[in-house]
Design a protein around this nucleic acid. Structure first.
Lengths: 335, 335
DNA sequence: TTGAAAGCGCTAACAG
DNA sequence: CTGTTAGCGCTTTCAA
């Protein structure tokens, strides 16, 4: 069965391609009767327009790309929902790419996206990413970019993120007020601005309460579960072990719990734990973990909405808009 | 800056479009010298081929679609990783669509995918989906489909899933051996074959141990967290409350834990809980939850690999292959 | 209100 | 080894 295309329809109806094309999109130029005939046959033959022919001709793809470090993280899974819901409403398709926190891969992916395959791109950068050059390169090619959550410092890109500095501060303050004096901060990157914002908030609280700053309390984790487990274990086994832990991402909370379990350290008696996360199981962990809970769905939604705003050029110069949505500290048993 | 395309390159090099095209794909017909010149200019002008022009011409898109009920579930997030890793290796792009368990949406999405936008489709069906008609329709249109995890009974589609019947049986048997006599099964659908397979395994164990079958113990949940919470709560509050619970999907485990907490029911003393899940936090819940752990990454990988096999028509008739990967019962504190 | 024709950027068959 | 040419299926002037 040969695919039915516009030509097939046109031939069978004794019309020209152009007329059929216009009829299919309900153009005002076409008579109601003709439209009816065209629609009827299209339905009958189950005509589906070829997406790429149309994209090629119109130079737009009705597709956006979503570039993520990973997907097995509650934040990102929920953010995808927000993004997808907006895209679906707009009739857009979503290409998903995972960088696995790898900068080279991220760069390669963004470079490929210059191909006209997408009209715009949403990015949450990898932990290894330091410079925005690959992002600017894409923008220079006429593909708008919106960063979300994992944004880059000092870029002129549109961005949606949360109040990381403030949350780092509030969470640390909370730990201090619950009696912690040696609070470890678990980072996943030395350069990621979001992680550093949280760290700066942490430092501000430390300063404010005049706790001794301690380099050993700043633990840089990475993408290897084994490495992270070892690093946290080392810290929690040391003589000078921390009595509080602030995890900058979800998986580090889980690793910390595992380490505490292995070392028979009681949470919160021996060490208090808080972290950035929207784990649905946060409240039923043993003990329930205090979290800084990000509005993941809303961030995804806002990022997608902003991208469409740029695509539709409604607003004047939304290319540099920065949107900040607030997170909330949810205190539970671990602190 | 106008986009550089093949014509631009050809003009600047004094070559024909055809030659440039061939040179770019390293065709044996082209001299090394010419290739060098073409490549050099392409690099210099940062030439990126237009994906849609090529797709239109070759009638293939180097793109697959991934149609999922949801993404905020450990199983699906990890499966995406498996799928994406295979796709990336093959140089394919991945379009992601969420049905939110809604059949009409699933149908609409699959219908759209007849547009030539993708070369193949991976589907895990919605809880509402009963018939495979919309899937066959896509296949009839020449788009191969592979179902994974949430497969459909009695289809002639390629499928990758796990040994659900056996796992339902083993998990139920385990609960019985730990002393349960009234085991509730939490379903998310009356028609989903995967859920029913698990249920049949459950029933087999019940029969084998001659426990009284009880309709009230079969609790059908749905997509509404509120409804599920209420249904489970009602059951666990009843006089005849179950002493064991088998949850057919991850989120129902979490809901069950929340309900037990609210009702002050001790797990495992008052009620034992097990469920299908690969929650990374399973071991640090309070108490750690016994799970039937599916090889999510491998399932995703296998599904994608099977799809590519079909696309490449290597094998003879893989269109009807059924692959079953085994899950494992991981016994923890909740039972 | 409809038709004719050009062309989006690329590929592939065929000719030279 | 390189060039010419004819589309892939659709949209969009412009003409009728």
């Amino acid at each position: 069965m040969p695919k039915t295309n516009i030509r097939t329809l046109a031939k069978q109806l004794g019309l020209s391609q152009g007329t059929v094309s216009k009829a299919l999109k309900d153009s005002y130029e076409i008579s109601a009767a003709t439209k009816e005939r065209v629609m009827a046959l299209a339905r009958k033959l189950n005509y589906v327009p070829n997406a790429y022919a149309s994209s090629l001709r119109k130079q737009k793809s009705k597709t956006i790309a979503l570039v993520l470090p990973e997907v097995a993280d509650s934040f990102f899974s929920v953010a995808i929902n927000g993004i997808e819901s907006v895209a679906q409403k707009k009739g857009y398709h979503v290409l998903i790419y995972l960088t696995h926190e790898n900068f080279a891969k991220e760069k390669a992916i963004l470079n490929e996206l210059k191909s006209g395959r997408v009209d715009g791109v949403l990015v949450s950068v990898a932990r290894e990413t330091k410079h925005p050059n690959h992002i600017s390169a894409l923008q220079t090619n006429g593909v708008p970019v919106v960063l979300f959550d994992r944004v880059l410092a000092d870029t002129i890109t549109a961005e949606v993120c949360t109040n990381d500095f403030e949350c780092g501060y509030i969470a640390t303050k909370h730990l201090i007020e619950r009696g912690c004096r040696k609070i470890a901060y678990l980072s996943i990157s030395k350069n990621l601005s979001i992680v550093n914002e949280r760290l700066e908030g942490y430092k501000k609280a430390i300063r404010e309460y005049e706790l001794p700053p301690d380099k050993d309390l700043l633990i840089t984790c990475n993408n290897s579960e084994g490495h992270n487990h070892a690093a946290i274990k080392k810290s929690l086994s040391s003589k000078n072990r921390p009595d509080g832990i602030l995890a900058s991402v979800e998986k580090l909370i889980i690793t910390t719990y595992h380490v505490c379990k292995a070392l028979h350290l009681e949470i919160p008696a021996n060490v208090k734990v808080a972290g950035f996360s929207i784990l649905p199981s946060a409240a039923i962990l043993s003990p329930p973990v205090t979290t800084i809970s990000q509005p993941a769905f809303e961030i995804g939604e806002a990022a997608a909405a902003l991208l469409f705003k740029i695509l539709e050029k409604k607003d004047h110069g939304p290319e540099n808009t920065k949107i900040i949505l607030p997170s909330a500290l949810i205190i539970r048993g671990s602190t």
